[in-house]
Amino acid sequence: MAELLQFLVSGVTVGAIYAAVALGFTLIYNATGVVNFAQGEFVVIGGLTAAALIGAGVPPLIAAPLAVLAGLVVGLLLYRLAIRPAGQAPLVSLIIITIGASIFLRGAMQMVFDKQIHRYDGFSGEAPIGFLGATILPQSLWIIGGSLVVFAFLAWFMGHTRAGRGIRATASNRLAAALVGINTRAAMNLSFALSAAIGALAGVLATPVTFTSYDVGVLVALKGFSATMLGGVGSAQGALAGGLLIGLIEALTAGYVSSDYKDAAAFVVILAVLFLRPQGLFGARMTERV
């Protein structure tokens, strides 16, 4: 029992990180139809900036928002310099552009920061909390809480604010949205800024547990992308469920089957789900640009 509980704790912690990354994917996709493969770099920028600031003696309470801000600025720049000029490019071109941007950002981070592995102490100390024979780090609670807050925020923002409705309208039909007076450009700027901020926040929260270095963005993006597609692209519930599910599959496979094939198990489940439900768990059937 304690054993199962420990596996679940591990799965939820890791899954919450995947979910936070997936939520970032979801927001940009919803506004622009782009799956942003540079999303992982926002996570790294958040983590490395926080690590550098905290290392320089800045209190975490100030360092964390600054790191999120750094991610936000980079996200805006990415949209302005790489995505907007591409206009209505085909899907593969957009994939290549975001991958190119991630390579560029990695090169830049290697210059701005360094190639070492970084971490800082958790916000509520390092002493593990025990319950029913399992243990959890206080920082894991921060990560899980953070993902839930981001999820709730997105649900509220997209559904109940003017700006959020603008983003949704822009996603479903950019021309129609523009015709009814929605500033589609502002909507897309906003979605990139918010999404990058979410990614950077994930990095800030996760780094005490996962550590970070300039080149982990690819793997982070890969997991986040998997979670996004498992849940169904464009759905916030899907991103949350997809992330948690992949985390749990990995932990339970490592615990009960074979740690060698825990990553494989996640991909097998994704393939199986897509065979049965080509739109992912929560995705809506819609035609896509190709």
């Binding site: 552009i97 560029f104 090169g107 830049a108």
Partner: peptide, 8 residues
């Protein structure tokens, strides 16, 4: 950085 910029 150069490679990424060329791709984009």
């Amino acid at each position: 950085m150069v490679l990424g910029a060329i791709m984009v």
